[in-house]
Design a protein around this nucleic acid. Structure first.
Lengths: 197, 197
DNA sequence: GAAGCCAGAACGAGCGTTCGGTCAAGAATG
DNA sequence: CATTCTTGACCGAACGCTCGTTCTGGCTTC
C-alpha cells in the first residue's frame, strides 16, 4: 500500500470501512439495490478484499444489524440502571432515540426502517430484539408499580413509543425537518399523557 | 378456453388474478424476492399473459399501490363527510385502520409496511399521499377549533396515529396476536388523551 | 518463506423482458 | 352460409444483463 503512508492503523479497519460504506448505501438505496460491486466502488476496495472480511453480502448486513442492536442494548441497560422510575426511564429512552436519529440517521434508518425480514430471513425481527424487549419490560414494570394505567403491556408500549417512533420515521423520510431532540418536551408530554395513571 | 365452462367473466379478471397473486407474494416474501416467474407460477398463467396486461414488474406494484391508496382515500373522505368533530373523525380513521388490518392484512402490509421507495422510486412516498395528508388536515383543523392542544400539527398527528400504526405493525409482524378492532377502545383512549386539549 | 491481505478477471445462475407465434371469436366480405 | 380478415388473449423459448461469488495470483510484513 503506497498511497497515504500516514495512516497508522490500516490493519483491521478495512472492515469498518466496508461496514460504513455498506450502511450508507443500504439506507440510501436499499439492500437489494446495492450490489457488492457498488460497495467495492464506493469504498475504494476490491471484491477480493470484501470477501476476505465477509463471507457474503448478507453477512455484511448481519454484522451491521448485530453491532447496532448491541450498541443500542448497552445504552438501554445504562438507562435502566441510572433511572429508577418508569417515567424517567422511558423518557430517557425516547430522548436517546431522538438524539440517535439526529446524530446517526443512517444507523437508525437501518435499524428501524429497513425490512430485515426480506434479506435476513433467519434473524429475529427488530421488534423481538433485546432493546425492544427491554422497552416492553419497562412498561410492564410501570403498570405493576401503578405509574401506568392498567393496559395490555404491548398496547401500552405501542402507544407510548409509537408516537416518537412515527416522528422518527417521518424525519427519516424527509417529511419532518429539523433536529428531533428539539421536539422532546412536547412529544414526551404527549406520550406520557397517553398512558400515565 | 375449454376448462371450467362455468366461469362467466373470465374476460378481464386475469388482471385481478395477477394483482392478487402479486400482492400476496410481495407481502409474503418482499418485492425483490418475488420474480415475475414466481407470479406466473402461482397465478397459473404464462409470462406472456402477464406482460400483456402490465408493462413490467414495477407496473404491477404501481397498480397495486394506486388502487389501494385510492380505495383508502375514498373511505377517508366518507369519514370526513359523515362526522363533524375532530374527535369523531380521528376515531373513525383509527377504527378503519384497525378493521382494515384485520380484514385485508396483505393490503395493509403493502401500504404501510413496504418500502416503496426502493422499488417505486418515482412515486410519492406513502406519508405524502392523499390519505396521510387528509389525516394531517384533520389534526390541524382540530387544533384550530381548540379540540387539540397547540402543537406542531405534524407532531400531533404523529403522536395520535403513531400508537395505532405501531400496533398495526406489531400485528403484521406477528408479535401482537388477535383481532385489532378489539383494542379500539383502549388504544383510542390513549391516543386521544395524548393530544386532546 | 509463511501468513495475512488485497486485486480483479471470470463464471454461472437467475432475473426482467422480448418476441414470434397459436388460438378462438367476431366482423367483414362474397 | 361460407370465407377471409382482424383482434385480442395467451403462451413459452430465448436473450441479454447483472449479480453474488470463486479463484488464482501477487504484494507486504514479520
Amino acid at each position: 500500500m503506497s498511497y497515504s503512508s500516514g495512516t497508522p492503523d490500516k490493519k483491521a479497519d478495512t472492515r469498518t470501512v466496508i461496514l460504513n460504506t455498506a450502511l450508507r448505501l443500504f439506507t440510501q438505496n436499499g439492500y437489494f439495490n446495492t450490489s457488492v460491486h457498488d460497495i467495492k466502488r464506493e469504498a475504494h476496495l476490491s471484491i477480493g478484499s470484501i470477501y476476505h472480511y465477509f463471507k457474503g453480502k448478507d453477512e455484511i448486513a448481519k454484522a451491521l444489524y448485530h453491532d447496532l442492536l448491541e450498541e443500542m442494548e448497552q445504552q438501554f441497560n445504562l438507562i435502566a440502571s441510572s433511572h429508577s422510575s418508569t417515567h424517567d426511564r422511558c423518557k430517557a429512552v425516547v430522548s436517546l432515540l431522538l438524539s440517535m436519529t439526529d446524530e446517526k440517521p443512517e444507523a437508525m434508518a437501518f435499524m428501524l426502517h429497513a425490512k430485515h425480514r426480506e434479506f435476513l430471513p433467519n434473524e429475529t425481527p427488530v421488534c423481538s430484539s433485546k432493546p425492544f424487549t427491554l422497552m416492553k419490560g419497562m412498561v410492564r414494570e410501570g403498570i405493576e408499580k401503578g405509574e401506568i394505567r392498567e393496559l395490555d403491556p404491548l398496547v401500552a408500549a405501542a402507544v407510548m413509543f409509537g408516537g416518537p417512533i412515527r416522528l422518527i420515521h417521518l424525519h427519516l423520510d424527509g417529511i419532518f425537518a429539523g433536529p428531533l431532540v428539539r421536539q422532546l418536551p412536547s412529544i414526551w408530554d404527549c406520550a406520557w399523557k397517553s398512558v400515565s395513571a
